[in-house]
């Protein structure tokens, strides 16, 4: 088991290096850079001549190392990340990229993990109910709701919820993670309650699709496992149905759900970008979007790298959990 873990961790290093190269190249692909925009600003707004503005911008390029070739820029970037934990400078926010990422990553992870946890637990429970009550009214109802949950785009659900809250329930403030009057307040009970009133919306919205998906996967798998011989063997031993279900059937139906955990995290971090923009959340999604639009190269690259790291770590964790519950994987 330990050698399996070590082997899996060692695989991660070359993978991350390769991914970082791809990220960097993709970010650099569009023509121009952040300073091209500055240059035209200098011309139109500061009234400098073409020659003056180019000279100024060229100097800035030199300062930030943007005049060097792409491979050299990459090497500098990756060297600073590895040696100093420095992800480069964000032109848009005018501060180090890692600061921009960290302050947003905290909220992103809290929202993403809550949504994920809820969607997994609720999805599993409904899936188990559906499979054990196949073709019952409850099964048909949850299948129908899951279908709706999967088909609605998240940003649309967000708009509908905001509309209902504001115009039906007369909630004074929606969007963001706190009402304006609490933004600068220190944490106290009232602020916490206010926070919860905002917090549940993104969690529910990002969770709904996950619930639907997990429920469908769990239902299908559990029905398969129910037909398997070892479940009949377990029943033939005279075990209680509850033990047959949880000890023998559910454990063997969890594989795809666990395997999905690895991919789910970055999906939730990045996939709710549009929802986050609609709800005006201080998460990584909107910042990543801005960084791409304004060619804030290093910030965008760092975001991408961050998401891939989350993806790789998530996959590693899900593989380890799989190996833990299924002995057949350990001995491969």
């Amino acid at each position: 088991m330990i050698s399996y873990i070590i082997r899996r961790i060692l695989y991660v290093i070359p993978l991350l290096l390769a991914v970082s190269i791809v990220c960097f190249v993709i970010i650099q692909l569009p023509p121009g850079d952040f300073l091209t925009a500055i240059e035209s600003q200098l011309k139109s707004q500061a009234g400098l001549s073409e020659e003056e503005s180019r000279k100024m911008v060229d100097e800035m390029r030199k300062t930030y190392g943007l005049d060097k070739s792409m491979p050299v820029q990459y090497l500098i970037w990756i060297k600073n990340i590895v040696t100093k934990g420095d992800f480069g400078y964000s032109f848009g926010y005018r501060k180090p990229a890692q600061e921009v990422i960290w302050e947003r990553l905290k909220w992103t992870m809290i929202i993403a993990l809550s949504a994920h946890l809820i969607s997994t637990l609720v999805g599993l429970l409904i899936g188990i109910y559906s499979a054990t009550h196949q073709y019952s009214l409850g099964d048909h109802l949850s299948t129908f709701l899951a279908f709706i949950g999967l088909s609605f785009p998240e940003f649309f659900t967000a708009l509908v919820i905001m509309y209902l809250l504001v115009f039906r329930f007369r909630v004074p403030h929606v969007g963001g993670l706190s009402s304006p009057e609490y933004v600068l307040a220190t944490w106290n009970w009232a602020k916490f309650v206010d926070f919860l009133q905002h917090f549940w919306i993104p969690v529910v919205i990002s969770g709904v699709a996950g619930v639907a998906r997990n429920m469908r996967v769990m239902r299908a798998n559990l029905l398969d496992v129910f037909r398997s011989q070892y479940v009949i063997t377990a029943r033939a031993k005279g075990l209680k149905e509850r033990i047959v279900l949880y000890k023998h059937a559910v454990v063997n139906a969890l594989h795809p759900i666990i395997a999905y955990q690895g991919v789910a995290l970055p999906y939730i971090v990045q996939g709710t970008m549009v929802t986050a923009i609609v709800l005006n959340l201080p998460t990584t999604g909107p910042a990543f979007y801005d960084a791409l639009v304004f060619q804030d190269t290093l910030l965008a690259g760092s975001f991408l790298l961050m998401v891939t790291v989350v993806l790789v770590i998530g996959n590693l964790l899900s593989d380890l959990i799989l190996a833990w519950i299924d002995p057949r994987i350990r001995y491969d």
Binding site: S228, Q229, Y230, T233, D326, R328
Partner: peptide
């Protein structure tokens, strides 16, 4: 009353 089944390969829970 105990019962054993046809397929020994799949009659035991793999985990």
């Amino acid at each position: 009353i105990a019962m054993i089944f046809q397929e020994p390969m799949i009659s035991l829970n793999p985990v």
